[in-house]
C-alpha cells in the first residue's frame, strides 16, 4: 500500500468535531486517520469506551477523545497526537513507532506493549505489564504501575512517578524502568542502580516537556542483571556435542 505523504500539524483550520456513538469504528477511524495525516485536529465526542480508536495513525495532526476509550487506542501508530479525557483500556499505544499519547485518567493493562518509539503519558495509574516488550520510546506514568511493568523490555524507558508493585523489571533486555516511589518487589534478573546525573537530567527534562511539576525525586533505575541473557549458550561449543 502506498500511503499518502503525511503533512505537518496545521493550525490554520478550526478543529473538526465528530460523534463516535455507535457508528462503525472503521468509519470513525477513517475520518480520524485522514484528519491526522493531513495535520488537522479532530475532536471525538461520545467515544463510549469503544475499542480500536485511532489505530494506525500517520502524520502530525491531533485527535482528542472526550471520554474514555477501550482497547488498543493509538495502537500500531506511526505518528499523530492522541489525548484521551478519561481512561483507556488494554494495550494503549501498543506497537507504536512514533507519535504521542496522553491519557488524562488511568490506563489499563499493557500500556505501550512492544512500542518502538514515541511517548505515552498517563496522568493517572497504569495497569499490569506496563511497557511489556517495549522496544523504544518513553512511557511516563504519573501514578502507580501494576505488576510485571517492563517485562522483557528490549529498549526505551518506563518512568513511574508513583509506586511499582510486584515483579517490576522482570527479564529486561536493554530497556530501563525508572521508579520515583516505592518498589514492592523486583522481577527476575532486575537490578536497581543509582542513575547517572546525566540520565536523571534527561528524565527531568522529558517530564518538564510533558508539563509535570519539577520536584526532587528519589529515582531508582532498574536495569537487567544480564544473568538471563546467556541462559543456554554461554559456551557455543557445548552444543556441538548433541
Amino acid at each position: 500500500m502506498n500511503a499518502p505523504t503525511a503533512t505537518k500539524r496545521r493550525t490554520d483550520t478550526a478543529a473538526k468535531t465528530i460523534v463516535a456513538g455507535d457508528r462503525p469504528i472503521r468509519e470513525i477511524n477513517q475520518e480520524i486517520r485522514e484528519a491526522v495525516m493531513q495535520g488537522y485536529t479532530i475532536n471525538v465526542s461520545e467515544p463510549l469506551s469503544r475499542h480500536n480508536f485511532a489505530v494506525g495513525l500517520t502524520g502530525d495532526g491531533s485527535v482528542h477523545f472526550a471520554g474514555s476509550v477501550g482497547y488498543y487506542c493509538g495502537g500500531l501508530s506511526n505518528g499523530g497526537h492522541i489525548e484521551v479525557d478519561g481512561n483507556s483500556g488494554w494495550g494503549t499505544g501498543e506497537g507504536m513507532a512514533a507519535g504521542h499519547v496522553t491519557i488524562n485518567g488511568n490506563a489499563g493493562t499493557s500500556v505501550g506493549a512492544s512500542m518502538r518509539g514515541g511517548t505515552i503519558h498517563v496522568r493517572g495509574n497504569a495497569g499490569p505489564r506496563c511497557g511489556i516488550a517495549q522496544k523504544g520510546g518513553n512511557i511516563v506514568v504519573e501514578g502507580n504501575v501494576g505488576y510485571y511493568t517492563g517485562f522483557m523490555a528490549h529498549a526505551g524507558r518506563i518512568i513511574c512517578l508513583g509506586d511499582a508493585i510486584d515483579s517490576v523489571g522482570d527479564s529486561l533486555w536493554e530497556g530501563t524502568v525508572w521508579v520515583a516511589g516505592n518498589i514492592e518487589k523486583l522481577g527476575v534478573d532486575a537490578v536497581v542502580q543509582k542513575p547517572a546525573e546525566k540520565d536523571v537530567a534527561e528524565i527531568e527534562a522529558l517530564l518538564a516537556s510533558l508539563g509535570v511539576k519539577a520536584q526532587k525525586r528519589d529515582w531508582k533505575q532498574i536495569v537487567a542483571g544480564k544473568k538471563l541473557w546467556y541462559y543456554e549458550a554461554r559456551d557455543a561449543k557445548q552444543w556441538l556435542m548433541i
Binding site: 500500500m1 469504528i25 472503521r26 477511524n29 477513517q30 475499542h51 480500536n52 489505530v55 494506525g56 477501550g70 482497547y71 488498543y72 495502537g75 500500531l76 494495550g91
Partner: peptide
C-alpha cells in the same frame, strides 16, 4: 479485539 485492530491498521485489506 486484536483481530479487529489489525483489520483497522490494514484498512480491512
Amino acid at each position: 479485539v486484536k483481530i479487529e485492530e489489525l483489520r483497522e491498521a490494514t484498512n480491512y485489506r
